[in-house]
Design a protein around this nucleic acid. Structure first.
Lengths: 168, 168
DNA sequence: ACCACCATGTAATGGGTTACATGATTTG
DNA sequence: CAAATCATGTAACCCATTACATGGTGGT
């Protein structure tokens, strides 16, 4: 697919656990082509809409499988800016902190609704009776499930924290 | 405090939502001193143990308060490598995936136990009857609480995912 | 006409990681 | 005497973000 396609696909699939800006995607695709992991061809679409479409090579697939083969042994380190802000909020006006938390409560409520609307049975028709896709779908569903659980955790934590601040 | 102190403090306080390597800490402290947010003095400890101890300036405090004043309006974007791996695990041997998940289950079990052992009433004695510290402690407890909830979510998700993979 | 979306790139900067580098003190 | 911990730094590199930059298509 093209850089643009990849960007769109990422936005509504891996977006909640891995994202990239278009600038990074285009430069990385070029670099991967240099390394031999991808090939590309420019497609001229009659009406001069130029798209550069990439295809993974066998070497590229081999690299992916290699990456999967060696397990991740460390716990990924979290970076949550909102928690840093809460950590230093002792010197802050409580009402300001509450306003910020309420705003994030709204954001995460919307995010949860979005994930729930993407629930597995929605893409069931796409999978159809292809057993390979059905197998992959289990893994995709698992990552979506993480997203749903994460949003629920976030909302529960926000609610508990707001409650505690109101009791100060 | 010194760079070394900061590093140790971060490891057992903000570690689960913000971390930094010593190389970054030392260079950033120097940069903040240049910017006038910190001052430092070298302390020679009789036995020639040189420590460079930093103190925040009023300008530095003002910067911190400014940063707190302007709310975070965007949702911080998550980057979870394990989820990327799961997303691409359709082509993988199920047993390999399960082994990796089991390993992470162990890691997160240990992490949860650690957080639970740090539970707020443990640092109650430190706070004593200082009302300023008591106020701050509410915020610190809130971030620790997030950590505990996060580890529980992670474990529940791992268990559900392992169950589903075993049913394949 | 303007806006949203399709489509692609480069450049500058900033942030973060790994590796290189050193040396003292304390504990088993 | 070896290992862990205290203590500090630099350099190279890589990854990621923001800003700069361009131009076509389709709908209201």
């Amino acid at each position: 697919m093209s850089g643009y396609d990849l960007k769109s696909l990422m936005e509504n699939s891996t977006g909640h656990f891995w994202h990239a800006y278009h600038s990074q995607i285009y430069t990385t695709l070029r670099k991967l082509e240099e390394d031999g992991a991808l090939t590309s061809e420019e497609i001229e679409d009659d009406q001069k809409l130029n798209r550069r479409v990439y295809t993974i090579t066998n070497a590229g697939k081999a690299e992916l499988y290699m990456w999967l083969k060696q397990s991740l042994t460390e716990m990924p380190q979290v970076k949550e800016e909102l928690l840093v802000r809460i950590f230093f909020s002792g010197s802050r006006n409580t009402e300001d902190t509450l306003r910020e938390l309420r705003h994030h409560h709204e954001l995460h409520t919307r995010q949860l609704a979005l994930y729930e609307s993407l629930s597995p049975h929605h893409w069931q028709p796409l999978v159809g009776n292809n057993p390979d896709l059905a197998r992959e779908a289990v893994y995709w569903a698992s990552t979506l499930n993480f997203g749903i659980r994460y949003e629920r955790l976030y909302l529960a934590w926000l609610e508990e924290t707001m409650q505690q601040l109101q009791n100060l």
